[in-house]
């Protein structure tokens, strides 16, 4: 496997807030192996060429969601993308649409706030006791939300979404998908609460159905479907509220 001959040039975005006024590009020409992923190349640079390069990674099996970056302008999980599909020069940058902390590391706290705001937990009028055992849920009921429960929070969808880029309040694809996943879970009774959030500022109606989130999702979650189903449900809920005003409404 080690022909060791092939070389590629990596044009990597660098930014150190202590030293750099603005992000800059730095090139590394390194030998690559045919079976490497993009992340393997970054690890090689870090270990052998430049120890100052900073980026996040952990599981290297496309499930922890740490290593999202822009590779040749597209948001990608770098541990998942085969190097062989790229040419002799590969451009690696931090995820678009996020403030950049350093090099390839982006600010994730904004995302964490958005995720929290959709109440991604089971809401029930009355909590069920452990002694009552597991709730029943048919495979068909499970199937309804299954796809949306596969989001690994890698935030690639945020980097692709034109609305995220231009409307800072927008909850964004992943957060809405996770919230929607709970709302359509047969065990949950919190859809009305989440619909309030979804109809609020930066909610589901900010989405312009670019579908880019689904194009770049590495786990085929199809967040665009979640967001647009959530719109539909939020409208139904709103219309029902007009006809049958709920108690406690203003």
């Amino acid at each position: 496997m080690s022909d060791g001959q092939q070389k590629k040039t990596f044009v990597v975005t660098r930014f150190d807030p202590d030293r750099d006024e603005a992000p800059r590009k730095q090139s590394y020409e390194i030998p690559v192996q045919p079976d490497w992923k993009v992340l393997d190349a970054l690890n090689f640079i870090k270990d052998e060429v430049d120890g100052t390069l900073s980026y996040r990674w952990s599981c290297r099996m496309a499930v922890c969601g740490s290593c999202g970056m822009m590779v040749n302008g597209e948001p990608r999980l770098t541990c998942k993308e085969a190097l062989s599909q790229y040419g002799d020069t590969v451009d690696v940058g931090p995820l678009a649409n996020f403030p950049v902390v350093r090099d390839l590391v982006i600010e994730a706290d904004g995302f964490m706030e958005k995720l929290t705001s959709v109440k991604p937990w089971i809401i029930r009028a009355k909590e069920r006791a452990v002694e009552e055992g597991p709730m029943r849920q048919s495979p068909a009921e499970h199937e309804e939300f299954k796809q949306f429960s596969l989001c690994i929070n890698c935030m690639l969808c945020y980097s692709a979404c034109p609305v995220v880029a231009n409307e800072p309040e927008f909850l964004g694809p992943a957060a809405i998908a996770v919230g929607h996943r709970y709302s359509i879970d047969s065990r949950d009774e919190g859809a009305a609460e989440r619909n309030e959030v979804f109809r609020g500022e930066g909610g589901v109606f900010s989405c312009s159905f670019a579908n880019e989130c689904s194009e770049v999702c590495p786990k085929n979650v199809d967040p665009a479907a979640a967001v647009n189903q959530a719109k539909f449900n939020a409208v139904i809920d709103w219309a029902t509220g007009l006809v049958l005003p709920r108690g406690g409404d203003e």
Partner: peptide, 19 residues
């Protein structure tokens, strides 16, 4: 875009649109 409600704890470079 994607900034936390409280300013980040270090200086950040502004978010870029996809190329």
């Amino acid at each position: 875009a994607m900034a936390p409600s409280k300013p980040g704890r270090t200086r950040t470079a502004p978010p870029q649109l996809p190329d």
